[in-house]
Design a protein around this nucleic acid. Structure first.
Length: 841
DNA sequence: GCTTTCGCTGTACC
DNA sequence: ACTGGTACAGCGAAAGC
């Protein structure tokens, strides 16, 4: 039997003590297919150098004899093969040790503490990753599978009968159909367009969302569940209503609603079940209620219930259906491209889809109780809307997720949950084979602790600006600077040298020196490939824009940008502090040299941060600047590249609040199209009230656009007047701060902690990661209640805003140093006014 | 009892 | 614990006078 196949979901299982892999996917006709494949587990014992043939033979015999019991299995060595491999770019002899069950790899490795063996490796990589590397059955790529039909077979405990699939095959052979894996694309431009060369796969997706009585997991009842897919929208409830809209289905009780939920998912038969924060809320809640009510939540294709794993956060897995929590993906990989301050479904949908949640949600959040018929109707519509938005968001993000999947060669489930360091590591692991490299082990607990004690190394260079308003600027920046430094100078764990060697690169780290081999290491080599591919797909995208190309170029960019942080991350297999410190040091050296060159060419450099430089055009032309850029580029080492980011009409830098120095990481620019680029100012900080943020934004606009500080001053005075006349809306004076840890762990009791405590008292949900909202109110006696936290009130708490606080701690600080640049002293103006007012009496 | 300094905390930049 | 370092600024409490 032969079928075409695109793998989506991967799982492993044991049968008669051996490992098997179960891959669920589709064929080109949309039939659901399960592929069962064998897996031959092995790991490596790297030999000490200079062992002779007979010593190795003897060792192999010794290893073959190892036998013990582990977890009810008799562990035996199936065979051993000696191979020439590389480890950390050094040639080694290694014994490939085959065993029955991969779960025994670690215990067997522990039994191999022998004098002939230098290191044991490749026993600690997740089994699915190992399988994908071994068999090259890559996620979301098309294959032709030949195999034996298991549909009515009792093999593997009758898995073919038990699974809810159209076809179940035991693999005989796997043949790739198209070269659609971007990691293996040749570095030449593809002749065909993406859509021609790769059949686009659109998975069957079902989005869901629940509404509950209480926020605490399992505490209250689940009132309703909504589902949204292609041409499919439904709300399930058990709350009786007289007049139900078409999309609502009412059940006798919560149990029956849960059973119907399972039934609908089965009949829709999605590849992907998606939710928003469903790892942490919807699925745990469903599990808790199902348990309590004795309902089986058999969502898996094998009738299994969701399984939960506890990491830093809860993760919910279904068997055969990939559960995607969009929030997790957005948080790790996508949030840096978003303006949204909270990453709530509401805000993210607004930004990405230009659609808002139902108005009803806002009232609901305020703790309204549902009683009238109309309110229930609204509630149903609101619930459905959440699933619809989630479904649309999934569609919007699908290419980003699927391209990530293909680039990293890991299943969707992992790719949407792993952090950037893990993704970088997985990318490396999947590509080591090109270098005949044996993977490094994960650091042990003591190694991690050791690495953590080392503290920081010197990072980026930031230029201290002189406060002021500047005209006609250009900004240069290095493309993927740290990544290109790593590639150019060959900085990595495997190229790091303990001692100075002939021909080695010497990097000055201030207190010490680090040395690196000039022989290309696999880490810089892979990174170079990543950067080149990023460039290739970016160029291709510009030629023929498609969301796939954009997502693919973006995936490579994200990996490239995370590579530097990875080498400095204590949990990394290829951790190398010296490489990370050297990367930062050489980046500093390069940017300082370029700054010197720009100055020598007759320009004034006014700012620089890490990989960018701001300079004044002065009497030079744009063409002069471009020529200079060309000249600098011709002199840059390796693959390093300086780009023109943009020309700007005007820019402003301000002084620090304390001292007369210019503040770093705080500036605003106006480009030639009249667009503002604001960095670091309160305008872009979510922990300032919108009154202060909007005022600052207006003032920056007036000053940059028109150079009109007097008009800006009038705007300021007007706002102050409104504040004093209590004309400001409460929503504009709310301060939002994130709760970063459990309330009890705070050593410093700041205003937001008090606000959270107040919420606790009112039985409102208080979770880590949530944004706490509050305002500062007037108090009877400022003398008795001096501390800000003593004036904290929740948004719906009765009270008046504190005029003095908002003036002195929000409005003035937000604009003070901007006006300072024009020798306008805001404080004097405000104080002067106050005296005048007193005089009026 | 007031001012200065410092640690804690959150957020942003790259 | 789940990429890195740099920087600013508010708040509250300790330190300094």
């Amino acid at each position: 039997m032969q079928t075409n196949f695109i793998p989506i979901d991967y799982d492993s299982f044991d049968w008669q003590g051996r490992n098997y892999i179960k891959v669920i996917g589709r064929n080109e006709k949309g039939k659901r297919i399960c592929v069962i494949d064998s897996f031959e587990p092995y790991f490596w014992a790297i030999l000490k150098p200079n062992l002779n043939e007979s010593q190795i033979k003897k060792l192999q015999e010794k290893v073959q004899k190892i036998s013990f019991e582990n977890a009810g299995r008799q562990v035996r060595i199936l065979k051993t093969i000696v191979e020439e491999k590389n480890f950390l770019s050094q040639p080694v002899k290694a014994v490939k040790i085959f065993i029955n069950n991969y779960k025994d790899a670690h215990p067997v490795a522990d039994h191999l503490d022998l004098p002939e063996i230098d290191k044991r490796r490749d026993y600690d990589i997740p089994i699915i990753t190992r399988y994908i590397i071994e068999k090259q059955l890559l996620p979301l790529n098309w294959y032709s599978i030949k195999g034996e039909v298991l549909d009515n077979s009792d093999d593997f405990g009758g898995i073919g009968k038990a699974l809810d699939v159209d076809l179940c095959l035991k693999v005989d052979s796997i043949t790739p159909l198209v070269k659609s894996n971007p990691a293996s694309f040749p570095l030449i431009t593809l002749k065909k367009s993406v859509s021609e060369s790769e059949p686009i796969f659109q998975p069957k997706v079902l989005a869901f969302d629940i509404e509950t009585e209480e926020f605490e997991i399992g505490k209250g009842e689940i009132l309703m569940i909504s589902l949204a897919g292609k041409n499919f929208q439904k709300v399930l409830t058990w709350k009786k209503c007289k007049k139900l809209p078409d999309f609502v289905e009412c059940f006798k009780n919560e149990e029956e609603m849960l059973e119907a939920f399972v039934k609908y998912i089965k009949s829709y038969s999605p590849d992907i079940l998606t939710g928003y924060f469903s790892d942490g809320f919807d699925l745990p809640y469903l599990r808790a209620r199902a348990q309590k009510l004795g309902v089986k939540l058999s969502l898996g294709l094998d009738e299994s219930q969701p399984s939960f794993s506890r990491g830093r956060v809860l993760t919910a897995k279904l068997s055969g259906i990939t559960h995607v929590d969009l929030f997790r993906f957005i948080e790790t990989a996508y949030s840096q491209y978003l303006q949204s301050e909270t990453l709530s479904l509401n805000e993210v949908s607004k930004e990405l889809l230009n659609e808002e949640k139902h108005e009803f949600g806002k009232q609901l959040k305020k703790g309204m109780t549902i009683s009238t018929e109309e309110e229930w109707q609204n509630f149903f519509a609101y619930n459905l809307q959440d699933s619809v938005l989630t479904y649309k968001l999934f569609e919007k993000l699908w290419y980003d997720m699927s391209e990530f999947c293909k680039v990293i060669q890991e299943p969707l489930f992992n790719v949407t949950r792993n952090g950037m360091s893990q993704l970088v590591e997985l990318y490396l692991l999947h590509n080591l084979i090109k270098f005949n490299e044996i993977p490094e082990k994960r650091p042990l607990h003591n190694e991690i602790s050791e690495r953590m004690t080392l503290g920081k190394y010197e990072g980026a260079f930031v230029f201290r600006p002189t406060p002021g308003l500047y005209n006609n600027l250009a900004i240069f920046d290095f493309t993927s600077m740290y990544a290109s430094v790593i590639v150019t100078y060959n900085l990595s764990k495997s190229t790091f040298l303990e001692k100075k060697e002939k021909n080695a690169l010497e990097v000055d780290l201030g207190k010490s020196k680090a040395y690196f081999s000039k022989e290309k290491g696999f880490f810089p080599a892979l990174l170079e490939e990543i950067i080149k591919k990023r460039k290739q797909f970016k160029t291709e995208f510009k030629k023929s824009p498609s969301p796939i190309l954009k997502a693919r170029s973006n995936a490579f960019k994200l990996i490239a940008n995370a590579a530097y942080g990875y080498q400095g991350f204590f949990g990394a297999r290829y951790y190398c502090r010296e490489a990370a410190a050297s990367t930062a040091a050489l980046a500093r050296k390069n940017i300082l040299e370029v700054i010197e060159k720009i100055k020598k060419a007759g320009y004034e450099v006014i700012y620089s941060d890490t990989d960018s430089i701001a300079l004044l055009l002065g009497k030079k032309t744009k063409q002069n600047v471009l020529d200079l850029l060309k000249k600098i580029n011709s002199e840059l080492p390796g693959i390093m590249e300086l780009d023109l980011e943009e020309f700007y009409k005007r820019g402003i830098w301000v002084a620090k609040r304390t001292g007369e120095f210019g503040a770093k990481k705080k500036y605003a620019l106006l480009d030639e199209k009249g667009k503002l680029k604001i960095r670091g100012f309160e305008t872009v900080r979510r922990d300032w009230c919108s009154l202060a943020r909007e005022l600052q934004n207006q003032i920056l606009k007036l000053i940059l656009n028109e150079g009109n500080e007097q008009k800006a001053l009038e705007v300021f005075k007007k706002t102050v007047k409104e504040l004093k006349e209590r004309k400001i809306d409460k929503k504009d004076i709310l301060i939002r701060t994130q709760l970063k840890k459990p309330l009890s762990e705070y050593k410093a009791i700041s205003p937001h902690v008090i606000a959270a405590r107040k919420m606790m008292e009112k039985n409102e949900p208080v979770n880590i990661g949530m944004l706490v909202e509050f305002y500062i109110s007037e108090v009877r006696s400022e003398k008795e209640k001096k501390l800000v936290r003593e004036k904290v009130k929740l948004p719906d708490e009765k009270g008046e805003y504190n005029i003095k606080y908002y003036l002195e701690h929000q409005l003035i600080p937000a604009v003070e140093n901007i006006f300072d640049g024009f020798n306008i002293n805001i404080k004097e103006i405000v104080d002067g006014k106050r005296q005048m007012k007193l005089g009026e009496f």
